[in-house]
């Protein structure tokens, strides 16, 4: 159990995929414009990474070395297809606003990276802990960026169609830059610098 907790917390803090490893940046920037998109993407990533880590860990002893990577890729892509079909069936609006970034989970460096570096070498329980830790770490980072971008860019916060709050001045004069693509680079760059400044991340 202690091992499980250690693997889990590792992904959230020590090797946070976005802020420390700088992996999976493409979705982190593209779908962090609203909290809704960030939540949808997080659910997708958690499901795919968990599923892929479990299956890969189960078959890790039987897979021939030479076709290891193609096998992993096929497994990951299948989980992504499942997520895509389920989203399309039950949350079509979210499926549409995530666009090509949902299928692109299949080539997200985080997922193949965890499959290759962890699940292919470790038993199932450890792989589950690793998948949960890494994907929750990813989700938290994504939500933090989306939170800042949506508040600054629209002057309020809206989750699943219900408005949580609107700020007085900002909602009338929102800083549209932040919901646009350059704003994504700006927010993530400043957050990274801030984390380094307060010592949360060590310099390389």
């Amino acid at each position: 159990m202690a091992g499980f907790v250690r693997e889990f917390t590792k992904g959230i803090v020590i090797s946070n995929p976005i802020f420390i490893l700088a992996l999976g940046l493409c979705p982190a920037l593209a779908v962090s414009n609203t909290i809704d998109n960030a939540l949808g993407m997080s659910v997708g990533v958690i499901f795919v990474l968990l599923g892929a880590n479990i299956i890969i860990s189960l078959i890790r002893k039987s897979v021939p070395n030479i076709v290891r990577i193609p096998t992993f890729v096929v497994i990951i892509a299948s989980f992504v297809t499942i997520v895509s079909l389920v989203f399309q069936a039950y949350v079509p609006a979210l499926h549409e606003s995530l666009g090509i970034y949902l299928p692109l989970i299949a080539v997200n460096c985080i997922i193949l990276g965890r499959a290759e570096a962890f699940a292919s070498k470790n038993p199932v329980t450890a792989s589950i802990a690793d998948a949960l830790g890494i994907s929750v770490g990813f989700a938290l980072a994504l939500l933090l960026i989306a939170f800042l971008r949506e508040i600054l860019g629209t002057g309020g916060l809206e989750v699943a169609g219900t408005s949580l709050f609107t700020l007085p001045v900002l909602s009338e004069h929102p800083l549209a830059l932040f919901v646009l693509s350059p704003g994504a680079f700006l927010v993530i760059g400043l957050l990274l610098a801030l984390f380094r400044r307060i010592g949360a991340i060590k310099h390389e």
Partner: peptide, 23 residues
Amino acid sequence: SPKAMKGLPIAFITATMLGLAFS
């Protein structure tokens, strides 16, 4: 550049400017 900005953070800020120019 400031110490905390060196490397990746300043690269992101540069990308912001480039993105604005491209818009």
